[in-house]
Design a binder for these strands. Structure first.
Lengths: 126, 126
DNA sequence: GTAACTGCAAAATATTTGCATCCTT
DNA sequence: AAGGATGCAAATATTTTGCAGTTAC
């Protein structure tokens, strides 16, 4: 495993992700970094941040990849079994960390990870 | 609303989707139709099939769009609240129609549709 | 006959990669 | 100094679209 470095691009991108109230796409990030770094670097940094467990990757309902802070995760426990809520009105994709769905798989199936997205109207747009 | 026609491309594509044990991507379909129709037509037909409610569109964990038959749906009731299972071994994406997760949204949130994907090992690969 | 559909090619998007150079440690 | 990170440009991949010609009903 490579030894990650603390570069300007990384700090800026992490800041953008952490300060956004909802999950951001690579487009959002590229727009947000301005001249700090290149488009290619945005993709590379995002990939590393995910590998390092600093952010998590969410697939939106329309297939757009977005990134959100890994708030509730520490090095040993990642909790990615909560719901992602996609608002049809304001288009924000937010993590509802407190909502963890319950389900039972059929015999012989084994779950490793889950990805739950619910779309509808969020509290702000209600 | 346009009046849909029963074309060769449409019949062939629907056949491919219905006969596959797991959800198929546009790539799979383009490979499957052979010379029956063009790549652009595959996209156009898939879009129409979704609009007409004949198939449903699933976003895989890696953001790949796939299509599956709308077996349990009639014109008035679509049941898309079941789980999609993505096998890490054989890579198949299947609908587990009988598994419907339970969850409760926070106050003032309203759900319209859900998209649940679980990845792990399927019964065939267990 | 008419509107829906298709093929082809080109355009619009999105993401990845090779390589020389720069920066963090 | 060494190796990780970056910029730039080119390569890949994916999906959309304009348009003229074809087909289903």
């Amino acid at each position: 495993m490579k030894k990650p470095r603390n570069t300007i691009a990384k700090r800026k991108i992490l800041e953008l992700i952490n300060e956004s109230p909802s999950a951001v796409s690579s487009q959002d990030i590229h727009a947000g970094v301005g001249t700090v770094c290149d488009r290619a670097t945005v993709y590379r940094v995002l990939g590393r941040l995910v590998d390092e467990g600093e952010v998590h990757k969410i697939i939106d309902l329309d297939g757009v990849i977005r990134y959100a802070p890994c708030d509730q995760c520490d090095d040993h426990h990642h909790h990615h079994d909560h719901i992602h809520f996609s608002c049809e009105k304001c288009n924000a994709l937010t993590c509802l960390e407190e909502v963890v769905p319950e389900f039972t798989l059929p015999k012989n199936y084994k779950a490793h990870s889950v990805n739950f997205t619910v779309s509808g109207i969020c509290e702000k747009c209600a």
